[in-house]
């Protein structure tokens, strides 16, 4: 794009890129390194493990931390997937209406999504804590899925509305001219065109639900529904003299890998989704 570029400039770009990659990966590399340290090395205060071992992974998958980690992993996956699914489906309908139809209250819905997005989670936690205890939703999956919707629904609505605005609507009109109803036009023409946007929205939604800690720690009390981030805070060592560092870092790596893989696979779409919904001139 700049035509001829001096070698010096090129080297500078590579150095800059290297610095950014180091910035992004350094803490991740550190936690991976910790997770491979054997119990004796965990407190040696060096960056790299001296005798790398899978011991900590054994602890969380078959050892003493198993009953803490595996249920939490199942809870996290189940709760986040359901919350993502529900919010993407609801947001899909809402975003279609916002991007496409003319009806009073459209701005109200968008503003509401904005307000919900900036809502402090702690202000929802306090009343729900009391309410959930009263109606039996405390420490259950629905007890987390419902508040998770406050995290995932607004971002889903914006992101999808932004994606939907870029769909060539003439095609839908063409379908309607050919005799299709609004609903048929939506299902047969728009859904296939919108699928990539919906998929991206689902990933972003899932990240947000997966990241939650405050609801997870406040509205659960046992393995019945406690998600991974909250469970990490409850790990204990094999004995009271042992730090749970190994188990925590191994578990952290396990829950980090899937999201990193998703990022690597869909980075272009994720960037489009994050920025489309937020800044568009």
């Amino acid at each position: 794009m700049m035509g001829a570029m001096s070698t010096r400039e090129r080297v500078l770009w590579y150095l800059g890129a290297l610095a950014i990659v180091l910035y992004a990966l350094f803490p991740v590399a550190w936690i991976i390194s910790l997770s491979f340290k054997s119990q004796g090395d965990l407190t040696d205060r060096n960056f790299l493990p001296r005798n790398p071992s899978w011991g900590n992974y054994e602890t969380i998958f078959s050892g003493s931390a198993r009953d803490l980690f595996l249920p939490a992993l199942r809870n996290s996956l189940g709760i986040c997937l359901i919350a993502t699914f529900v919010s993407v489906v609801l947001a899909m309908f809402a975003a279609y209406a916002i991007a496409r139809l003319d009806f009073p209250g459209k701005r109200l819905i968008l503003s509401t999504a904005l307000v919900v997005a900036i809502f402090p989670a702690i202000s929802i936690v306090t009343p729900l804590f009391n309410l959930w205890r009263g109606i039996g939703l405390y420490d259950t999956w629905p007890g987390l899925i419902i508040p998770y919707l406050s995290l995932t629904l607004p971002i889903s609505i914006w992101t999808l509305a932004a994606f939907f605005r870029e769909i060539p609507w003439e095609m839908e009109q063409a379908a309607q001219v050919d005799g299709a109803t609004s609903w048929q036009a939506f299902r047969k023409v728009i859904v296939p065109l919108a699928a990539p946007g919906v998929f991206t929205t689902a990933i972003i939604s899932f990240f947000i639900a997966w990241n939650d800690f405050i609801y997870g720690i406040s509205l659960t009390s046992t393995e019945a529904s406690r998600p991974v981030p909250a469970a990490l805070a409850f790990f204990t060592g094999a004995s009271q003299f042992e730090e749970p560092t190994g188990a925590i870092t191994a578990a952290a790596v396990v829950v980090t890998i899937p999201v990193v893989v998703l990022v690597l696979l869909f980075q272009r779409r994720i960037v489009a989704g994050l920025t489309n919904g937020a800044v568009k001139g």
Binding site: W30, R45, L232
Partner: peptide, 30 residues
């Protein structure tokens, strides 16, 4: 660069907190 900077975005905040805490604390920090 774009892929690299998305990685911190995707890491769970709690995991980031643990990474920094273990890096600086007195028992395991490098």
């Amino acid at each position: 660069v774009r892929t690299a900077i998305l990685i911190p975005y995707a890491i769970i905040t709690v995991v980031s907190a643990f990474a920094w805490w273990y890096g600086f604390n007195l028992t395991s920090g490098f």
